[in-house]
Design a protein around this nucleic acid. Structure first.
Lengths: 215, 215
DNA sequence: AACTAATACTGAACCTGTTCATAATTGATC
DNA sequence: GATCAATTATGAACAGGTTCAGTATTAGTT
């Protein structure tokens, strides 16, 4: 019950569903191509619709607004990115180095199209995400980082009296900060951002206090 | 030479200059009132122009785009905010507490109109600022924080082998992160953001490493 | 005061994201 | 297959930010 009526090809039955799914795919492809070719502002909603073979109004049955198209394009890519990054993490790596596997993967991706990435980052950090799509992605990413932290805690290389989530937040804060200095305010180059981020992660781990030093 | 021609009231001579200055003031007041009353999107450029007593095209001789109006409104306020905060800092305060004087002042301000502040923060962090206005303000703010850090370093309560600017960046990163979690992604309340920020600053100071602990 | 170059102002027109009344398509029922 | 309700698609119309060709104002010069 509550399955496909009777004898459909399993995946998803009706013509309705199939049409919608294919339309979404066409929209995603059209958006990706035009964003990459012309940037976010340069690609007009009308042109994306034309290329996707739909009416202008139809687009907004699939996304709330133009900016949401960014996520449609970005989502799969992002998941792929941190899956790859996770596989690159090795056991003997220190926490900052392991985390940099993840962060560098995204920085690398952003560097391929900084103008577009600026808008993506802006939306990522300033939008309320619906839990079932981007929200889930964020949690998944946070989960990957949490794994690294927990491992480090289990090995007693990290204070055990600090919540995992607190550590993850702190490290993520440095990441977002330097990405914004690079893509947003354009105060540093990509190399400087990456270097500063690595340094910030190391410093976060070591601490700033003069009390506990050198003992 | 290259001063006002001969016998002007010192400040700034010509009628042109005066008109322009007054127009800018009218624009700023109109923008502030309408932004506060109707929010950023709710206040149309045309209405701001009408209230400022200028033609619609004239607005864009004074600001590059509508979003720049936010800075026109925010700039004086921000300078006032951290001047006040600076006066509230006391000598015996720990670094995290002293820094929270500054950050809390801004958080307090943001809380008075979170919707508008969301857009302000977004622009603050994602825009290239012209050096003579917002860029200068940022530097000034960073300078205030740097003073606190230097003082702490002089008192040998802080590691001396880390650049002041590195410490400031790290702390500022936590600030922007939690502001964004609160205003942008709306993942935490104002209270949670403030509490998490304080905790992050303390943790940054203490460090995460298990090596140097309890000695 | 008259003339002129330079500067500042204007609002109609333009462009683009988004909405919505209307039309077309789908799937269920007989 | 015919009927019909529900869903989905459409593009003209709308709204708001921004531009620019034309107009007005200012300041310097005679």
């Amino acid at each position: 019950m509550s399955q496909s009526p009777s004898s459909q090809p399993a995946a998803a039955g009706g013509l309705r569903e199939r049409n919608k799914r294919e339309k979404l795919i066409r929209i995603r492809r059209a958006a990706r191509q035009l964003f990459e070719r012309k940037g976010f502002e340069g690609a007009t909603a009308r042109e994306i619709c034309r290329r996707a073979g739909i009416g202008t109004g139809t687009l907004f049955l699939y996304v709330r607004d133009k900016r949401e198209l960014l996520f449609l394009v970005f989502r799969d890519e992002a998941r792929r990115l941190y899956r790859e990054a996770a596989s690159r993490v090795e056991d003997e790596m220190s926490l900052p180095v392991a985390m940099m596997c993840f962060f560098s993967a995204f920085i690398e991706f952003y560097a391929r199209n900084p103008e577009l990435s600026r808008v993506i980052a802006q939306e990522l950090f300033f939008r309320e995400h619906e839990p079932e799509t981007m929200g889930a992605l964020t949690l998944e990413f946070a989960g990957e980082l949490a794994k690294l932290v927990e491992q480090e805690q289990r090995r007693a290389r990290l204070r055990a009296d600090v919540d995992t989530s607190t550590v993850v937040s702190a490290c993520f804060a440095h990441y977002t900060f330097w990405v914004q200095c690079w893509l947003g305010a354009k105060m540093v180059s990509r190399e400087e951002a990456e270097r500063s981020l690595r340094q910030a992660l190391e410093l976060q781990l070591e601490g700033l206090s003069a009390r506990g030093m050198r003992c």
